[in-house]
Amino acid sequence: MINDATTIFKRPESLSETVTHYCPGCTHGIIHRMVAESLDELNLRERAVGVAPVGCSVFIYNYFNCDFMEAPHGRAPALATGFKRTRPDMICFTYQGDGDLASIGMGEIVHAANRGEKITVIFVNNAIYGMTGGQMAPTTMPGQKTTTSPFGRDTNLAGYPIRMAELLATLRTPSFIARCSTQTPMHIVAAKKIIKKAFRLQKEEKCFSLVEVLSTCPTNWGITPCDATQWIIDNMEPYYKLGVLKDPEKGEG
């Protein structure tokens, strides 16, 4: 009966077989897979170039079967700009965390979006610095305890968490800006559609696209993986509202 077997689920071609270094319960792996599936389904892998950030996903180039460059901290959108302007026929995406994109890389992301670079940015927001061991990020929630805010983020001193998707959606230049999440399978299915659309818009040479993905960090949040998904629902989602903020195909670009 083996001949009747049909493959209905397999590793995307865009993902390599390397085992990731991510902690148990971290959703980077899921987000990698959604990006890889999108590249496969849109037939983009062979002309895709990724830009790796500095942060937990610094080794993303080991997990993908496409070309990659490794950026200095926060500068991925500038590298993507340089590459895409030089090779407009290629597909270029960055994959950045919240320390990388919303802190040290704030200048590069705002200007890349404002120029309308035809690149795709996957922005993974887990409200903390992961790789360096759990320090406060610009996205850390008010009152959230981190190694550099042991009594909780004090908004009098550190301000409020930056809502990157909203900030970028204020720019006049047409773009696709959305926020999605990973806390349940239903959210993941929705996120996949959004990520795929972001890549499709680049394939069609339409506009800059950025997808913010709310993600877990059980290790540095100091809770279990299951509690971590609930933590997104209880703490992040009310502040970081899910949805499409700007869509050129809906006259909102």
Partner: peptide, 26 residues
């Protein structure tokens, strides 16, 4: 050719980095 007036010299350096990865002269 392509010319980008960057937002800063920090960005210029990194645009060069990305562009140089194409193998073209930058």
């Amino acid at each position: 050719g392509a010319f980008v007036q960057a937002e800063s010299e920090v960005a210029v350096g990194n645009m060069l980095f990305g562009a140089a990865c194409s193998g073209k002269r930058v």
